[in-house]
């Protein structure tokens, strides 16, 4: 294509009998240079792939994501160590790990960077997916570490399955709400949600006192049902976000 254009230009110059005329020759050279310069502007530049992009996001956001998780983990472990019968209070702690991913996830909306970021190659969806991958990894590490601490505090791994359910159900509730917030692009609801999630921790804490049967072995079935329901909602929200990326859908950052 490029060569053809240059060839066409040269052919037309030759047809016009320009080959012997020094002035025309200069014009032809200048014309060719102009064509080549114009085409240079269309040369595709190298762009990074998703994994390189993910490592870039880790470079810029990693400290915030992992630092906050480490902070929450430390706090939660100290708190858990001071509580008797810690297994009943696990639902109080795990939403805090979900809450800790909120500042890096919503940073661009908070600082009014969303519009600018949405117009980049990565798009808002890819940025969110990269942040979610990192936040998910950070959550996985810290929640696993927390369960290990609980086991250590209890000095046994009995009822481990139930303990995991006590932790994961409230966590999935919070994360589903966060993903929904991301999908709905409701900046003004972020703080309302954060307060509601923190409030839910208190409700879970009260439930340990008011509804002790909820933490009996006999209630395991209820926890499993809750887990399946919220895992379903959570997966659905993840699918929505993934679908947006797959379709290349880039709208929605501005309402």
């Amino acid at each position: 294509m490029k060569d053809r254009k240059i060839e066409e230009y040269l052919q037309s110059s030759l047809k016009n009998g320009a080959e012997g005329h020094p002035l025309k020759k200069e014009e032809t050279i200048a014309g060719c240079i102009a064509v080549m310069r114009r085409q240079k502007g269309y040369v595709e530049e190298e762009r990074t792939g998703f994994w390189q992009f993910l490592s870039d996001v880790l470079r810029f956001e990693g400290l915030a994501i992992f630092g906050l998780q480490a902070g929450v983990l430390l706090l939660v472990c100290m708190w858990a160590g001071a509580i008797e019968d810690v297994s009943h209070y696990i639902p109080v702690f795990t939403p805090l790990f979900a809450l800790a991913v909120m500042p890096p996830l919503f940073r661009s909306q908070f600082y009014n960077m969303g519009e600018m970021e949405a117009a980049t190659r990565a798009s808002e969806v890819e940025i969110i997916i990269a942040k979610l991958i990192l936040a998910g990894a950070a959550n996985l590490i810290s929640i696993t570490a927390f369960f290990c601490v609980v086991m250590h505090v209890q000095n046994s791994s009995e009822n481990m399955g139930q303990i995991v359910l006590y932790g994961l159900v409230p966590y999935l509730v919070c994360m589903t709400a966060i993903l929904r917030l991301i999908r709905m692009h409701r900046k003004e609801r972020i703080s309302v949600y954060a307060v509601a999630a923190a409030g839910s921790c208190m409700v879970w804490g009260l439930s340990a006192k008011a509804l002790p049967w909820l933490y009996e072995t006999s209630a395991a079935g209820l926890w499993i049902v809750l887990f399946v329901i919220f895992a379903g909602f959570f997966s659905k929200e993840l699918c929505f976000i993934w679908e947006m990326k797959r379709e290349g859908k880039i709208y929605g950052s501005i309402n």
Binding site: R47, F60, R121, A122
Partner: peptide, 13 residues
């Protein structure tokens, strides 16, 4: 540099 990363520009460039 952050915006360049979002625009997919390799680090050295």
């Amino acid at each position: 540099l952050y915006m360049a990363a979002l625009k997919g520009i390799p680090r050295n460039r």
